[in-house]
Design a protein around this nucleic acid. Structure first.
Lengths: 144, 144
DNA sequence: TACAACTCGATTGTGCACAACTTAATTGGG
DNA sequence: CCCAATTAAGTTGTGCACAATCGAGTTGTA
């Protein structure tokens, strides 16, 4: 047993799973004209809008260095609008265009299909989801 | 319960955990002069060398588009050497320099510290590791 | 109220991930 | 034996992630 062995490292298992999800989503999302991180942004906006870049960043744990260009691409694709918040000119409010809102219907079947591709039972999925939540909190805590 | 809600999506939990690991590793690795993906490459080479780019890619599930520039940076840092395989001129064999081999000792304490930062028991870790393995296999299978 | 501290967002630079393509070497079937 | 198919690396282009930095707007306090 060697602690430096790749197969023994949880980090690699997480990394690999993340890329496997990403690859599967990529296929499903190309027909919607979205990348996976763009899809995550749309998920948040379908839930609640308008949101400032800051609020989006809090929800997705991303900073403006990632979000600014991503949102610019979503705007260029006609899916979102951006405007300065009149109440606080530092903030930029992001909202869905009608086309962005309409895209939700075409995205609706995605989570179900993805869930099916995991090949896991609802119980297993719940356990895994919970364990990952604990893990992320511990790692974030350790990084402070 | 809304299937499109971010918090209900396993994919986001995996994505977030992966980035949390990445962030914590980044801190530990800067003093070794490595990024996290470079560290993964070194892990494989510490285990077994020489390896062709192809074999490294199989172990890490990465293609030459990712590995070629990464290996070039490791070479520039003096940690690996690259040379064409005399037995098959298509292949490039990657091996550790003495400096690259020496770095292993400084990396030795890392997995233990990371494990500690997960805040999980060995049993929990084993379960999570196994679940992620099943997940990655299912997702990879579904993408075929 | 003046101004220092802070907040928000955008930008720049580095590196990873992957698709699509190119080039060179090898292999195998007719 | 020859050439078409295959294989291995590398290159190019796009997009994500993040650190560091900047400028404009806001806030708290002396």
């Amino acid at each position: 047993m060697n602690a430096l062995h790749l197969d023994n490292q949880l980090c690699f298992a997480v990394h690999a799973a993340s890329r496997a999800f990403d690859a599967l989503y990529r296929r499903q999302l190309t027909e919607l004209g979205l990348t996976y991180p763009q899809y995550l942004v749309m998920l948040v906006l379908w839930e609640r809008e308008p949101l400032s870049v800051k609020e989006l960043g809090t929800a997705l744990r991303l900073d403006s260095g990632t979000l600014s260009p991503l949102l610019k691409r979503l705007e260029a694709a006609g899916l979102v609008d951006r405007e300065r918040d009149p109440a606080d000119e530092r903030s930029v409010l992001v909202r869905l265009t009608p086309e962005g809102a309409r895209l939700r219907e075409r995205a609706e079947p995605l989570p179900g299909r993805m869930l099916e591709s995991t090949g896991m039972s609802p119980g297993e999925l719940a356990d895994l989801h919970a364990a990952l939540g604990r893990l992320t909190r511990s790692l974030t805590e350790a990084a402070r």
